[in-house]
Design a binder for these strands. Sequence first.
DNA 1: GAATTCTTGACTAACTCAGTCGGAATTAGA
DNA 2: TCTAATTCCGACTGAGTTAGTCAAGAATTC
Lengths: 144, 144
Amino acid sequence: MKLSKKSEYGLRALLELTLAYGTATLQRHDIAARQHIPVEFLEQILLALKRAGLLASRRGMKGGYTLIKSPEEITLGQVIRILDGPLAPISCVSKTAYQKCRDCPYANKPQCPVQHAMGPVRDAIAGILDHYTLADFTSGHHHN
Amino acid sequence: MKLSKKSEYGLRALLELTLAYGTATLQRHDIAARQHIPVEFLEQILLALKRAGLLASRRGMKGGYTLIKSPEEITLGQVIRILDGPLAPISCVSKTAYQKCRDCPYANKPQCPVQHAMGPVRDAIAGILDHYTLADFTSGHHHN
DNA sequence: GAATTCTTGACTAACTCAGTCGGAATTAGA
DNA sequence: TCTAATTCCGACTGAGTTAGTCAAGAATTC
């Protein structure tokens, strides 16, 4: 039931990139310093977000990262799925990464009690996180 | 965001114990066989649930485990907290195990964006799991 | 006292998490 | 063209967690 550091750092990094959206590109060390994230670890995260199509980057002097989509289009659910995998507490109730549970005596049967309990949990989590955008995430936030 | 095998097995074991509630005591190997759980691993789980006050046990021949409280009084939230720890996705929004996040630039400040997003998630999860009892969990279930 | 069952504690192999490191590729500016 | 700055990529690591396994001890019944 836990959010990894990777996702937490990823969200905080995207917060900075959202604040800079349209006006500036940010470098690893800028983000790392503002959010107190180890720079080499942050790098991995930014690369993953880039591969997933959320960020663009430039190398060399004056390089850095920028958001490639508008903050209203990116949800926390997307980000967490990229960095941490599926939101569902158990894969037999996942919608984005469903997997039949093997060795469960109720697998396949219509009334698996675990699914019955965890389905609504996954829907509640996804219902919040898939409607919460980076714009929402940043609103109310002012630097220093 | 994931439920451990420990919790999953624990819930499935409690399902069997709920079905037997008031009529029989179950032994490790009964539960293990019905739910396809490795018996030595199940043992740890049952012991933890016993220490937490949900189960009673007897040793020796004709021994076994029984539910000590009625199924309406035990929620999935309680069980998962015993076996997996807090439900909150991040400890700074936990109500049962709050911890200030260190090294977060927003720690203490009233408007931490991560808390703002994850607070409702933790409330949604707890809202479901703390109202879902073993009685609900078992309803609609009939053996074979 | 023998068989059965829970109890306790230690042990382990595999995996994940949270980084760290070294070097290669790209770009800007001198 | 040279150099400094920056991203990119892969490998590596130490600590901790997960999912068990195992052996020996204590209680209970027959």
